[in-house]
Design a protein around this nucleic acid. Structure first.
Length: 215
DNA sequence: AGCACGATTAACT
DNA sequence: GTTAATCGTGCTC
């Protein structure tokens, strides 16, 4: 299989030069720890034809258990949300607003529903492909939203339950940039408009302002 | 069976 | 700042 890339600076073939995916054990930890540690990591999409698209994760949110009234698990296990009860390190991809897909990484032990929503990445490889999939706009607006990521990386229901740690997987998360803890900011989670307190305001959103990641 | 709404986005005033 | 788009899901009747 030939791996192609649009970056002029890319010389060695993928994945030889790329680090191995984060192991499943990375995700088998408290969700808040996983969320913080996902900042600076690389989201890596390899399509069946070898096309490579990657980006640096810099904004995430944690959703933790049935007691978290902002989490889809609040209404119990259903066909839609069952991936959150599954093994850690797999994808939970769901459809919302009648048109958008959103990507989460499942965390904690199998049987406990929790996940980290990927809200924003900075494109690294495959920017031309991202520009094609997204509507024309400035680069900094191409992947700065959870549904934008899925559109830019061609992620949909086919990836629900998929492993994020299998080296040959279509969708993996791999080591990326070193992160200075001082860069990390927190806030309430976005879009939980009708969720009761304290869940609406709890600071389970973690992000790094993009200027820190200009490497 | 019907209905309100969503872990959003883009376009609009 | 506001709002349409667009439909699967979960809740009510």
């Amino acid at each position: 299989m030939v791996h192609r890339d649009t970056e002029m600076t890319q010389t060695a073939p993928f994945p030889a030069q790329k680090p191995a995916p984060l192991p499943q054990s990375f995700y088998l930890r408290p969700t808040l720890d996983v969320a913080v540690d996902l900042l600076g990591k690389q989201l890596v999409r390899i399509e069946s034809n070898g096309d490579l698209t990657t980006g640096i994760i810099h904004e995430v949110e944690a959703y933790i258990g049935e007691d978290d009234l902002g989490c889809h698990a609040r209404s119990g296990r259903t066909l839609r949300n069952e991936a959150m009860w599954g093994p850690p390190g797999h994808a939970y991809v769901y459809f919302t607003y009648g048109m958008h897909w959103l990507l989460n990484a499942v965390t904690e032990a199998e049987g406990f529903p929790a996940a980290v929503l990927l809200r924003s990445v900075i494109p690294r490889n495959g920017i031309d492909r991202i520009r094609t999939r997204r509507k024309p706009q400035p680069d900094h607006l191409l992947t700065n939203g959870p549904a934008k990521i899925c559109q830019a990386f061609a992620i949909d229901e086919a990836h629900n339950h998929a492993s994020l740690y299998h080296p040959a997987g279509a969708l993996t998360i791999r080591p990326g940039l070193a992160v200075d803890p001082a860069w990390i900011q927190t806030s309430a989670r976005i879009g939980l408009n009708t969720v009761p307190e304290p869940w609406k305001s709890i600071a389970w959103r973690f992000f790094i302002p993009p200027q820190h990641l200009k490497n």
